[in-house]
């Protein structure tokens, strides 16, 4: 579904990713770890087609990113559930409208979609915040909302950058369980996190692999947890 082949990315003369090869296929569950600034977000943005590498090839759903038009990239992103670390919202829209955005950009939003959004918001503990504006929410609430928005359109794969960074342990486990449940249904997940406890907690529930990014190099921390 996503293939990175010998990808190199640098910013301002600093090498962020060097000769990275990675593939995300149906059923995969990857944890992506590494110190801050190691390039986890860059790798996720590459996978989302939000940036292009200086060298190497990125393929999204079998198509080379370099040959995709902006419309084609948008089409690919519609098949993904993406959560960035800096959870992005339209600050002037109520939370429910923000969560419905993946549907809004596709066409008219009907009552069924709205009901799905409300169910998901309730599940992540935001049922009482439907009319709240994003700036009034805490960091943890925003993260949960971002995950709800990413999962609402039933994506074919999930890319999540530190989705539990601001959450308490209980909520982190709850969201992790949701991602694992999705993975069991065949949805591949690539989740960047520095929370080793969370990775250990996932061990009994999923056959996940741990990737480590350091000095621009991607290595596999072990065949399994």
């Amino acid at each position: 579904m996503i293939d990175l082949s010998q990808v190199t990315v640098g910013f301002g003369g600093r090498m962020v990713l060097a000769d990275v090869t990675f593939s995300l296929q149906p059923g995969d569950f990857f944890f992506l770890t590494g110190p801050s600034g190691a390039g986890k977000t860059t790798l996720l943005r590459l996978c989302a087609g939000a940036m292009t590498p200086a060298e190497g090839e990125v393929r999204l759903f079998g198509r080379p990113l370099s040959e995709m038009t902006s419309d084609a990239r948008a089409g690919a992103r519609r098949r993904m559930g993406i959560v960035y670390q800096d959870t992005q919202f339209l600050d002037h829209l109520p939370l429910e409208e923000n969560i419905l955005l993946p549907f809004t950009v596709r066409g008219p939003v009907d009552a069924e979609m709205r009901a799905q959004a409300q169910d998901l918001m309730t599940w992540v503990g935001l049922g009482g915040h439907r009319a709240a504006l994003p700036p009034t929410l805490s960091g943890g609430e925003r993260q949960r909302a971002a995950l709800a928005r990413a999962l609402l359109p039933a994506p074919e794969l999930v890319l999540a950058d530190e989705p539990t960074g601001n959450l308490d342990w209980e909520m982190s486990l709850k969201l992790l369980t949701l991602l694992i449940e999705l993975n069991r249904l065949g949805t591949p997940v690539l989740m960047a996190t520095h929370d080793l406890a969370l990775i250990r907690a996932a061990k009994p529930m999923v056959n996940a692999r741990v990737l480590r990014l350091k000095d621009g190099k991607l290595t596999q921390a072990g065949a399994a947890l």
């Binding site: 989302a48 902006s70 419309d71 948008a74 089409g75 519609r78 992005q88 993946p102 950009v105």
Partner: peptide, 14 residues
């Protein structure tokens, strides 16, 4: 930021 968010959720440029 609006553009970033819209692209994140799959909005086409048009």
């Amino acid at each position: 930021q609006v553009i970033d968010v819209l692209r994140l959720v799959g909005a086409r440029d048009t």
